[in-house]
Design a protein around this nucleic acid. Structure first.
Length: 310
DNA sequence: ATCCAGGCTCCTG
DNA sequence: CAGGAGCATGGA
């Protein structure tokens, strides 16, 4: 076991504390260890299990600095490079977010959102497969319960990485899930329908019908189309994965229940916004609709955390 | 009990 | 092709 350390400089504005606060309070964050100043998570990079650790460094002037560590078995410099690229991509460290400010100038409601979210960065899923599985698990059930299901899936079928006498869970590989039957997931409180979708997805990957590497190379619209052709993946799921798994910044899951709720509330509709309404509104965030979605979820989380602590 | 929760598929008219 | 029923689960 050895560790490689680096310093990373995110493009400003970057508010690590805010990003961690949101990430750590999100129900779906079950495989990460997050506190108010650091992040830890075990992932496979190039097939090799590693522990990624991030902490805030000394901030010079206005640009924050991140301390980054990767720990694993017999790490070479190329592993360090690979891990660093993974972090830059997963935490969107190179995003030129200041362009987004323009979208707020004509919309007082969204300007308020922008101010509260300034510096908040999206955190992508470690893999597209995990994003897809999480989106399917989360369909039409409350996110707390979805988190329970995800955790159970990882505990039962995922590998673990032990570093410094501490054990970190990893999300199951498609190969592992492809061999399961519906009966295997029933004890984890997956509905039959969801079990079918998840297992079918894993098999698609293993059998090569769904090439996740290739998916990364496609334009957002084509990736969305490709995803929607899978059983169990509708428009919401595809858009969610394009945004949170593939990292496209201009894709918004407009049918999302949470978005419809928070947007309806803030624009004074007295009801949930409809999907077409969200889509129409999102035109004004064009170029950054995915960031807008993130920001709205952040607002929603804060509002609903206040009224329902825990 | 009843309604809801970060939908999807399939079937109508 | 738009709209709605039916679907599975657990939680409030």
């Amino acid at each position: 076991m050895n560790t490689i350390r680096r310093h990373l400089r995110p493009s400003p504005p970057f508010d690590f504390a805010k990003t961690l606060d949101y990430l750590g309070s999100s129900a779906g964050t079950v495989l990460e260890v997050v506190d108010d100043r650091s992040y830890r998570r075990a992932v496979r990079l190039g097939g090799k299990p590693v522990l990624i650790q991030l902490a805030e460094g000394v901030s010079r002037s206005d640009s924050a600095e991140l301390l980054f560590e990767v720990t694993g078995e017999d790490l070479q410099s190329q592993d360090g490079r690979r891990a660093q690229e993974w972090v830059r991509r997963t935490f969107c460290l190179d995003a030129q977010v200041d362009e987004l400010a323009v979208a707020g100038t004509t919309d007082p409601v969204f300007r308020e959102v922008l101010e509260q979210c300034w510096g908040l960065r999206p955190v992508l899923f470690p893999t597209v497969f995990e994003a897809l599985a999480w989106a399917i698990i989360g369909q039409q059930i409350n996110v707390g319960f979805a988190a329970t299901c995800k955790r159970a899936l990882a505990d039962r079928y995922g590998d673990r990485l032990v570093v410094a006498e501490r054990s970190y869970p990893m999300f199951p590989e498609p190969e592992r899930l492809a061999g399961l039957s519906e009966a295997d997931l029933a004890p984890l409180q997956f509905s039959r329908q969801k079990s079918r979708y998840i297992i079918g997805l894993a098999r698609s990957v293993v059998e090569g019908r769904l090439n996740l590497e290739e998916l990364q190379q496609l334009p957002a619209g084509e990736a969305e189309e490709r995803l929607t052709s899978l059983m169990g993946v509708g428009r919401w799921t595809a858009e969610y994965v394009v945004m949170r798994g593939l990292g496209w910044r201009d894709t918004i899951p407009a049918g999302d229940g949470g978005l419809r709720r928070v947007i309806g509330r803030h624009y004074g509709l007295g009801r949930n916004a409809t999907e077409p309404e969200v889509r129409a509104l999102a035109e004004r965030w064009s170029g950054w609709r995915g960031y807008a979605a993130l920001y709205w979820w952040y607002i929603l989380q804060r509002e609903e955390r206040k009224s329902r602590p825990g």
